[in-house]
Amino acid sequence: MTRLGMTVPFDNVPLGEQRDRFVELEDAGYTDLWSAEAMGADAFTPLALASVWTPSMRLGTAIVPAFTRGPALLAQSVGALAQAAPGRFTLGLGTSSDVIVERWNGIDFDRPYYQVRDMVRFLRASLTGDKVSAEVNGTSIKGFRLGVVPSEPVPIHIAALREGMLALAGREADGVILNWLAASDVPTVTKIVHDAAEGAGRPDPQNVEVVARLFVAVTEDRDTVMALGRHAIAAYLNVPVYRAFHEWLGRGEQLGEMWRLWGEGDRKAALEAILDSVVDELIIWGSAGTCREHLDAYVDAGVTTPVVALLPFGYDERAAARALAAAG
């Protein structure tokens, strides 16, 4: 495994007090720090701190929603962070979900494919420092010129679940970001990415980077993993975009009863309906050595950059991060 990322920041620790945790990751051999954006810290602030705290590490967002910032503001955020960490920042952009976009931000989750496609094209143009006029999902942007131009090109990765976005990543992005999938699912999704890259005439279709955010619990307490893992899976896979993803992957029969009961409002029964085998497929757990073997299975299947997201299942997460790195 040539790259290994960690999801930051860590929960339940004030952001300004996480420097030692970030530095430990760098010292342990992690190559990447990737932030997310839901209801905690925004995606850019932890990476701005990391640009100073961990000067050797690559920094990435997995992901920034394409809807929740205007095009000019998003370009400013990208340009500023790219200047703070020259050559070390990768923008991961995606649709996010209707929950985050509509319910929490009051923005219409309208034509998400076009929002991502047009935002990627706008950012590509604006990050050169040229004056840009463009259409982003039906909205006109007129005469914007970015004042913080990166010294090096910023790679843009697209978060993708199903065929349309996967193919868009292959045609127009530097990489694809995957989430909530089993190692056995990786060839299904990466084939679409690589085929689209080849169809677009890209010089080396296999070089589209594949980043996967993988949920890890470094514990051998099976009962805890099964109980808490069901909660984590239900929280995500009942969101419409993730339900559609797993139906497409062929888990309709395995997850159908959970979806039915959840829709009827019987949350307890819905959790009980999630099979142990689904938890084992979607959550990496066990000793540090076992977890690294499972991470390696994703790499063997086609992931180029696994990014660990530690699940808070009652173990020492700081020690677990070190043990994971040492087990490689």
Rank of each mutant, 00 (worst) to 15 (best):
M57S: 12
S77I: 00
A80K: 04
A50Y: 01
F67P: 05
A48Y: 01
A85G: 03
A66N: 05
V52I: 09
V52M: 11
A84S: 13
A82C: 06
S77R: 15
A72Q: 14
A82Y: 07
V52T: 13
A82T: 06
G60L: 04
Q83H: 07
A84V: 00
P71F: 11
T61M: 04
A80G: 10
G70N: 13
A82Q: 08
A75H: 12
L73N: 13
A75N: 10
V78H: 06
A85I: 01
L73Y: 10
V52N: 10
L81A: 01
S77T: 00
L49T: 00
P71W: 08
Q83L: 13
A48F: 02
Q76Y: 11
A84H: 07
V78L: 09
V64H: 07
G70T: 13
G60V: 02
M57T: 03
I63S: 09
L74N: 09
S51L: 06
V52W: 11
A48M: 13
P65M: 03
P65G: 14
S56A: 13
G79R: 01
A62V: 04
A50L: 01
V52E: 12
L47Q: 08
L49H: 13
T61G: 10
L74M: 15
T61I: 03
L81R: 05
W53T: 07
L81C: 07
Q76I: 03
A82I: 04
R69I: 00
L81I: 08
A84M: 15
Q83Y: 00
L47V: 05
L59Q: 09
A82D: 02
S51T: 04
A66P: 03
P71Q: 06
V52D: 07
A75E: 04
P55I: 02
V64S: 14
A85L: 06
A72F: 04
W53K: 03
V64M: 13
F67S: 09
S51V: 01
A82G: 10
S56E: 12
T68M: 09
R69T: 02
S51H: 06
G70S: 14
W53A: 15
V78E: 03
V52Q: 15
P71G: 10
S77M: 12
A72R: 14
P65H: 06
R58L: 06
W53H: 12
L49R: 14
S77Q: 15
G70M: 07
A72M: 14
P55S: 09
A82P: 05
S56H: 15
A85M: 06
T61Q: 08
A84P: 00
P55L: 05
A62P: 01
T68F: 01
T68P: 00
G79W: 02
P71Y: 10
G79I: 05
R69C: 04
G70V: 00
T54S: 12
L47I: 07
S56K: 15
A62L: 10
A48P: 00
A84T: 01
I63D: 01
L81S: 02
V78S: 11
S56D: 12
T54L: 06
R69S: 09
L81Q: 03
G70F: 02
